[in-house]
Nucleic acid binder design. Structure first.
Lengths: 338, 338
DNA sequence: CATCGCCTGTATAACGTTATAGAGCCGCGC
DNA sequence: GCGCGGCTCTATAACGTTATACAGGCGATG
């Protein structure tokens, strides 16, 4: 099909090996021949066949980013950053959608893709420590988000407990005394949902407020619809909450909608706060107060750690990084003071 | 590294070729040997090295979906569908973000990725007919969305003019007489923005309403912020519109926000309609009336056409498909009647 | 009974690249 | 005058797979 090394070699009157050396500088080439080869390359419009290169090198130049839902703007924004970072390092990022499915996560960890991918960035949802430890694939793995700990892999996440503290402290500061949480899950001791509930509980206690399990709404997933339904249920309680802390912005947006349909005012009747700082929250009515993780940092760091491992930094010990976050005050908890 | 064909062949006591035939059924294999080989495969946990396979076959099994912004929920939803469809056909889809950049679109059309990708689905924004015709790469190309016509490639899009008609007719039906359009662009005769403006204009004329160029707001991009700014400008006019038709839902959401900040009621003061039916519009306050394209159909069709071409349907003439759409009435144009 | 064709299975040459071993040439020191 | 090391470049063997050409066995056909 296309132009290959041999064509260039013939055109320039040199050997295959010399052309290869010109292309990727593995060994030095004399100035005159290099120029001749370069000219042939330009004239014929050669670009290396990556498949063949990777067969020979044993690497494909592909890394995968596996996330539970592409539809979630948080992950879409993260993916956009990661794709750019990977491209800058000479890698192509392919997105894998696990759809929060256990089988899909397991298949990625150790599946048939292993030959096609040099490394994997995974945001685990349904698998835990054991599954990660049981993995036999030898390609580097970087974990993002919470859920799996104490495994020999790099791990990047925000401090969920601290983030929840910040959210609750803010609600307490604006005078709320009955704050609900939407987005708890059953089981999963170390899942991020669990950690966020823990932070919620600890912060309430620290503020001298009671923890009421009725105000903790469980959901199957973390989408807008889940938030809306849960909020509706909370409003049906005898004594509904005066504030809601959503597992993420999507859930919080759903809560906003349920409140609007119920004819309640935000933040006067119920204040709402989420986590993720998705763009949608900057344009909703009311705009959404949120805990903003440093998506840029997470995306770039994950890719860079992975590439470092792929390119041979096996020696370094697995790194666990907690990226910073900040509170962004918007209308859903009252007009910012500052 | 991993287990390869040779290992299996030795274990089962057969030749390489036989194992290969068992794996991909290119030629029939006797029942007894097939079983023995299969057993060896299972025992050793063999999975084919895709790089090598693709080098031999001349195909990589990768197709690319190039879209102008991953952040746009419309494209994220489309991508999710396309990824699933590609996986079902044995292909891996890699996402390419052109960021609505001309250079990026050109690079994709004819760039260094050509060896790594079997085919490309492109949503062009900044390039036109000439650039597509000038392309030298020989891999199949499927275009989605509008902007490029009369090129020898499959093309899938909704009928933008008709969609705009439907939107305007709806606004007229609910009694609006001064409808603005947000999201026009300069130049680009056949760009979708241009087509949507044309439909807007034609439908107004058909309804016996005047077309006022002051009510057509131009934007640089099609995001929430663009919609918000444009709406603000429209409201500053001496006689502001009583309805707004957004280039897409994102722009419409931005308009909703500007209206809320201006203290205007939707739909009483200003009705709003968009195109895309993104989930966000089902949860915004008010919920957003929209023209819903059949995303599932577009995503699946694009992938299937591309794969058909890759697998040798060069004979068939390029297909241009217009996928259906429907109007979804929500609060932003008044409570649905039906 | 020889021949033809089918059915299984094998040996082997690609695919396009990179890394290794080595060949030719030149100048320098003993 | 001969060997030795440094510098370029070349020849070639992989990487793991698939497709082609071919070989042997066996029943059916003339």
């Amino acid at each position: 099909m296309g132009v290959n090394l041999k064509d260039i070699a013939q055109r320039a009157g040199v050997s295959l090996a010399t052309v290869s050396n010109v292309v990727n500088g593995y060994r030095p080439v004399g100035e005159r021949t290099r120029l001749r080869v370069q000219q042939a390359i330009d004239e014929l419009g050669y670009s290396p066949n990556l498949g063949a290169r990777h067969l020979r090198r044993g690497r494909t130049g592909l890394i995968a980013l596996a996330i539970p839902e592409l539809n979630n703007p948080y992950f879409a924004e993260l993916a956009e950053i990661a794709i750019a970072e990977a491209a800058g390092l000479g890698y192509t990022l392919v997105m894998e959608n696990t759809a929060a499915d256990r089988g899909a996560e397991l298949a990625l960890l150790d599946g048939s893709r292993r030959h096609i991918i040099d490394g994997l960035i995974l945001s685990p949802v349904r698998i835990g420590r054991e599954e990660v430890l049981a993995r036999t694939a030898h390609t580097p793995l970087v974990l993002i988000g919470e859920g799996v700990y104490d495994v020999p892999h790099d791990h990047i996440a925000i401090d969920n407990v601290a983030a929840s503290h910040a959210a609750i402290q803010h609600l307490v500061a604006i005078g709320r005394r009955r704050t609900a949480f939407i987005g708890a899950t059953r089981g999963g001791e170390r899942q991020s949902a669990h950690l966020r509930v823990r932070g919620y509980r600890e912060a309430l206690t620290a503020a001298g407020l009671p923890y009421r399990s009725r105000l903790v709404a469980h959901t199957d997933a973390f989408g807008r619809l889940d938030g809306k339904r849960a909020m509706r249920d909370l409003l049906a309680l005898g004594d509904p909450p005066d504030a809601v802390f959503g597992y993420n912005d999507l859930v919080a947006v759903g809560a906003l909608r349920a409140l609007a349909e119920a004819g309640l005012r935000v933040p006067e009747d119920v204040a709402v706060i989420g986590i993720d700082d998705i763009e949608e929250g900057r344009f909703s009515t009311p705009t959404l107060t949120t805990i903003a993780p440093d998506k840029r940092e997470i995306g770039r760091l994950a890719v860079r750690r992975l590439v470092a491992r792929i390119e041979g930094a096996e020696v370094a010990a697995p790194l666990t990084v907690q990226t910073p976050f900040r509170l962004i005050r918007r209308e859903s908890t009252g007009t910012p003071v500052g």
